[in-house]
């Protein structure tokens, strides 16, 4: 019968329409600003800089090695290396970024800066409501806006943050062991050399 297929299709639509009042499966949307879907743990939006401790400037992990600046595909990162040095988490003197800007209007959230960073210092944030009325520089984020505490990183990506802390702790332990070994060697060198046995009289 002509039209049977159409009626069959309309019955399917009707089932969906009335089903949306009773079935969770057919009601799939969320009224956004009032209700939100939970974000997946891996979600990535834009990068931020991790700092340890309380002082964002002192605790910044970034050592301005500029690898991310070189590797960034759309080249949205701009770094100026400092002239002086500050101690990092291991107590080693390191350069720090005097300027660290990310143009979020250019950034394409590819996460390559995170992957190439050898210092666990740049990570992806999950904040996505960043729209601004200032179109000149409103999305150009400076060091201060980008710096976020390690606790924030632990809150948004707990698994990754724990792994990254473990990497840093291992580095630090390695450094301390090396320092201890160096100190022992130094102490050994400074101590008077053991007295050579007297030549046996013959």
């Amino acid at each position: 019968m002509l039209g049977k297929g159409i009626i069959k299709g309309l019955a399917e639509t009707a089932r969906n329409f009335f089903g949306s009042f009773v079935s969770e499966r057919r009601l799939t949307t969320v009224p956004y600003p009032d209700a939100r879907q939970p974000l997946a743990e891996n979600t990535r939006q834009f990068p931020f800089l991790v700092y340890d401790g309380d002082d964002w400037e002192q605790g910044l992990r970034c050592v301005a090695c500029q690898i991310c600046e070189k590797e960034c595909p759309p080249q949205c990162i701009y770094i100026v290396k400092s002239k002086d040095k500050k101690p990092d988490y291991k107590g080693q003197m390191q350069f720090y970024p005097a300027v660290f800007d990310i143009d979020l209007a250019v950034c394409m959230s590819c996460q390559i800066c995170v992957e190439v960073c050898p210092f666990e210092s740049i990570k992806m944030d999950t904040e996505f409501e960043l729209s601004t009325a200032d179109r000149f520089g409103g999305l150009l984020f400076h060091k201060k806006q980008l710096a976020k505490p390690n606790a924030h990183y632990h809150r948004i990506h707990p698994t990754d943050a724990a792994a990254s802390d473990a990497v840093l702790a291992a580095e630090k332990a390695k450094q301390e062991a090396k320092a201890r070994a160096a100190a022992e060697a130094k102490a050994k060198a400074a101590a008077p050399a053991p007295v050579a046995p007297p030549p046996s009289a013959s």
Binding site: T28, A40, E41, N42, T43, R44, M108, S109, C110, Q111, I112, M124
Partner: peptide, 22 residues
């Protein structure tokens, strides 16, 4: 699109992004 959203949710959980997975 209703079905696609479910697949994109899986992609987001795995790769971090819904469309530009990289």
């Amino acid at each position: 699109f209703r079905e696609r959203e479910k697949i994109l949710d899986l992609f987001e959980a795995l790769t971090g992004a819904r469309m530009m997975c990289n």
